[in-house]
Design a binder for these strands. Structure first.
Lengths: 200, 200
DNA sequence: CGTATTTTGGATCATGTGATCTAAAACACC
DNA sequence: GGTGTTTTAGATCACATGATCCAAAATACG
């Protein structure tokens, strides 16, 4: 019916994610995006709309390939406590393994672009809440089975883990030191009576 | 010897802080800065140098009037445990009391501008370490006196509080809900055997 | 008062920005 | 093979950006 697209959508979105992740939204120009996506400005605009729409698509692409799968994978672990510890371990290893100090695109975006962008903020909040809910589910089921000792309210425990994770992701961007990131995670786990993280 | 300056340095730096805090570094133009500082571009440039240098000055101004005094004030509290709880309480109230969801300029900057700016990164890290050290001093002296129960290593406890604070400041910018911020703080305090925060 | 020195105001420069336009190219369908 | 529809490619638009220049203004000092 019409001329087919030459580019691979996954590949070009990967490239867009990389730029936004490394440099942030404001600091990335549309020309730079088009170059790294190996397509022209017009094609990019035609396929994805304006810069904001492309950012949204890139963010969704990032989350599709990253967050949701990770939660599902860890939730299938041997126990809720292992799911929590494994999720934190993976977050730390990802943070330390990235030489570019990129942190987490979700957290970076929540700080840079969400505050003055209600649509994006709602979207990001929904994703962040996914993480909070994951922690809460783990806490609830773990305590119900007796594997996690009772203590502070379930909600507070989940929020503690959630904010610890965010803190770790912030530190990953500015001070990516293993002792620091692991110390925060160890502190949260131990103080909730959870087993330590698996070795890296 | 020469023509005196017409502007009040404190006032213009306050204005610069406000713009950078509300919008971030990249999203704030030099013209907008000059307008809000009530001076001309040339005067601004003459007095503070380029945009990056002005940002650095604004950041220092913000920290001078905010962070260091707060730490000193809380450290003079009745007990180390009260110092920790009071510091978290004040951070939460500041976060919730700001209708603009600005969060903390230090944390925002650590994510947006520090990663590709070694000088600024070192400066920000030194300031962040000031907070971490404050928590560590409180834990150490509180445990030595018996007011804070022994448990996980001092360093890990300090890192847990530190990353919880960062997480709270991130959430303040995207999801400023009292239950959420207080829940994270309550979780951290209770799980370390610390007394709860004072009422707002 | 005169002069040296700094700040101030306004204009301006070169460049980068997001976005769009036009025409050529490429394919699916009839 | 023709036709219609979409994607490409390159040029370009209007504007914003960071930074600078130059002359006028304002003061402290001699």
């Amino acid at each position: 019916m019409a001329r087919p697209r030459k580019f691979d959508e996954t590949a070009v979105l990967d490239a867009a994610v990389d730029r936004f992740w490394t440099q942030g939204y404001e600091a990335t120009s549309t020309r730079e995006l088009a170059d790294s996506m190996r397509m022209t400005l017009a094609s990019m605009h035609n396929a994805f709309g304006d810069k904001r729409a492309l950012f949204r698509r890139a963010l969704e692409h990032y989350l599709d390939g990253s967050l949701r799968a990770r939660i599902a994978r860890h939730e299938a672990a041997a126990s809720p406590a292992a799911a929590i510890a494994g999720f934190l371990r993976e977050s730390i290893e990802r943070s330390l393994g990235d030489g570019c100090r990129r942190g987490c695109l979700l957290v970076n975006s929540a700080l840079e672009v969400a505050p003055d962008n209600p649509d994006l903020r709602d979207f990001l909040n929904a994703e962040l809440t996914t993480i909070e809910d994951f922690f809460r589910r783990c806490i609830v089921t773990g305590r119900r089975s007796g594997a996690i000792p009772a203590g502070i309210p379930d909600d507070d425990a989940a929020r503690l883990l959630f904010s610890t994770l965010l803190g770790i992701r912030v530190l990953a961007r500015i001070r990516p030191e293993r002792d620091l990131l692991e110390g925060a995670a160890r502190g949260a786990l131990a103080s909730l009576g959870l087993p330590p993280m698996p070795d890296p």
